[in-house]
Design a protein around this nucleic acid. Structure first.
Length: 224
DNA sequence: CCAATTTGACCCAT
DNA sequence: ATGGGTCAAATTGG
């Protein structure tokens, strides 16, 4: 019993920590000029994390549901050292030059592919990938020059069924193997439906998204 | 048997 | 020409 609960407790803590990290990052993104997609993605991830946490709490840890164990398992005692550096706050010390969104007057030739970086530290969690609540399907893997670990390419599972063209890249940091750099690209169109805890706010947000995204979708679809 | 992953080849932008 | 991103055939897992 206690074992099971302990495990769930770890997961619970991890989820909450994850939510906190994501909130931090979201704040950073608010300051910087980041794409709406990423901000929305971060918000979605935060909600997802807390939903899972609540789910665990509600069940009291006695559940046979193998539901995503989630993320890492570790977090011994080091409190998220992800953004540990005070002041640096810029989780993206290497914010790739986002040259491009200034081309209002210029042609759109510069691929509007805005990819924002999200860092997820999984202390010891090489076992569990960070789950943002969406279903991803791996479609490629490449060795990137200058990096020690390969980069993996994922796309939404519902690309064929629902024209969801969202993709994400996952790359392990060279120096901190415990840190995964996740880049989201595109927006989710799939009626993913919440698999857990239907909250009214969610629906509201969804609607807002649909409205807001209409613009983006156009530009995105323009690509295709 | 279907769906997801793997892996090398191909394509495109720099 | 080179490196990064995607495709698609083969393989594996459920």
């Amino acid at each position: 019993m206690e074992n099971g609960w302990s495990l769930e407790k770890k997961t619970l803590i991890t989820e909450i920590i994850q939510g906190m990290e994501l909130a931090k990052q979201l704040r950073a993104h608010l300051n910087a000029t980041s794409s709406v997609e990423t901000r929305d993605m971060l918000a979605q991830s935060i909600l997802s994390s807390y939903e899972k946490a609540l789910l665990i709490l509600n069940r009291g840890g006695s559940t046979g549901q193998p539901q995503n164990a989630g993320i890492s398992a570790g977090v011994p005692e080091s409190p998220i050292s992800i953004n540990g550096s005070p002041g640096s706050d810029g989780f993206d010390g290497s914010v790739k030059d986002n040259q491009g969104y200034n081309e209002a007057s210029k042609k759109r030739k510069t691929t509007p592919r805005l990819a924002d970086q999200v860092r997820v530290s999984t202390e010891n969690g090489l076992e569990g990938q960070y789950d943002d609540g969406y279903s991803w399907r791996k479609y490629g893997q490449k060795d990137i020059l200058g990096t020690k670990y390969p980069r993996s390419y994922y796309r939404c599972t519902h690309r064929n069924s629902q024209n969801c063209w969202a993709t994400k890249q996952v790359q392990r940091s060279d120096e901190d193997p415990t840190v995964f750099e996740i880049k989201y690209r595109g927006t989710h169109n799939c009626a993913h439906g919440n698999q857990s805890i239907p909250s009214p706010e969610e629906q509201e947000k969804k609607q807002k998204n649909t409205n807001n995204n209409s613009q983006q979708q156009q530009s995105q679809q323009a690509l295709f």
